Simulated scan of single mutants.
Amino acid sequence: MFVSAPTILHADLDAFYASVEQRDDPALRGRPVIVGGGVVLAASYEAKAFGVRTAMSGGQARRLCPRAVVVRPRMAAYSAASRAVFALFRATTPLVEGLSIDEAFLDVGGLRAAPDAVAARLRREVAGEVGLPITVGVARTKFLAKVASGVAKPDGLLVVPPGGELEFLRPLPVRRLWGVGPATAAKLARYGITTVGGVADMPEAALVALLGPGAGRHLHALARDHDPRPVRTGARRRSVGAQRALGNRPRTPEELDAILVGLADRLGGRLRKGRRVCRTVTLRLRYGDFARASRSRTLPQATAETPVILDVLRGLLAAALPVIESRGLTLVGASLANLHDDRAVQLALPFERGRAVDAAVDGVRDRFGSAAITRAVLLGRDPGPEMPMLPD
């Protein structure tokens, strides 16, 4: 019986932001490094050994690792490093599906070299030409390749042999399955299910009854390594998002509203630039105790208009204010989903857009002190140097 070779690579840069800082400053190499002060954006593996994790408050991170070196993020340096690494990905194979700034799937099935040799060469090239460590997992499915890279971290290479997928998967903790967070893991643990094998052994109907149809069927398939998705190049994003870390300083409702204006302006601009529209608007919050919550609304009419997006975000935030007042807030974000090409959806007419902007201007005039500035923000234009900036 013919068994296909594992030809899908999941390449994932290790502690990306922190690794760039250690690369660029030799004095940081081998030392615990934290990127970001108020909230941890990234931590080197030396800092992770002390329990420091991404999204942790800076104060908690410094208590866990007093000797850590805290550096300010340099987004331009990280973007440049990402471009250099992705150039090496695309020089390896044209079939590259980027997942984020620091990870991608590669399909190397059309190359003459063995996939494990391709992966080893790619790791050498990234280390030699870009100066960064990268971990690669190799398997026959995207899901398993990503799991393999997670198991192999840091700075490793792991090939899941064909025919040995389930043997590799079954003993792994259930959190290795995509979509299993702390809440789902706790729910499964109450039924004695702590490994991927335990999920695979459950009847699909039982998982659906426990977790719902979407999550139940999804996890049942993954636990048995059923993942037919190919590596897709040039696929359009299904959602866009932006967020703002707030640190530990309490924010007034006026400050939060101004942050929403900025997020809505940025996301609306991205939609219009890509000639896309959205139907679902989601507000994402991280409270002072680092618990996360999200609130969504699906619109009856698809839109790319900043005022409409802003109005939805304001309503979602207003509903969450009582919880924010009692628990605090360390991060606010927004995302737009159910995206479509704007040519396929009839948008609001220009005079309708003008009325929407005028209404939004009335709502924020007092906060910015200038209706002209506010109108420029809502329409996606540069408001100029008079636009007030929020303190970090």
Rank of each mutant, 00 (worst) to 15 (best):
T194G: 12
G247V: 13
S370Q: 10
L28R: 05
Y191F: 07
A127S: 15
D107H: 06
L349T: 08
M202E: 13
K146L: 06
L256P: 12
M75F: 01
D107V: 06
E204G: 09
V20T: 09
T54E: 08
D25E: 11
L211Q: 06
R53H: 06
V312A: 11
A76W: 09
E46T: 03
P154Q: 00
A139L: 07
H226R: 03
L64C: 03
P228Y: 06
A80Q: 01
V345Y: 12
L157K: 01
L219V: 13
I324A: 08
L9Y: 02
G37W: 12
R343S: 15
E125P: 10
G363A: 15
A114L: 08
G288I: 02
L64M: 03
E352Q: 13
R90V: 12
F143E: 10
V312L: 13
F105A: 05
R355T: 13
P6H: 02
D341Y: 12
L95R: 02
F105P: 15
E386Q: 15
F351W: 08
P162H: 11
Q60E: 01
P161V: 00
G150E: 06
Y17I: 08
T54H: 11
G384Q: 01
P26V: 06
G163Q: 00
L158F: 05
A337N: 11
P322E: 04
R292P: 15
A302V: 02
S294W: 07
A264F: 03
T184R: 05
V377H: 04
G384M: 03
A293P: 00
L157F: 08
V39Y: 07
E103F: 09
L158E: 03
L177D: 07
M389A: 15
L132Q: 08
F16Y: 06
I309F: 01
S57T: 00
Y78T: 02
R23A: 15
F351N: 12
M56R: 07
A344G: 14
S326T: 10
A334M: 10
R140P: 01
G110V: 15
D362T: 07
R176K: 05
G150N: 03
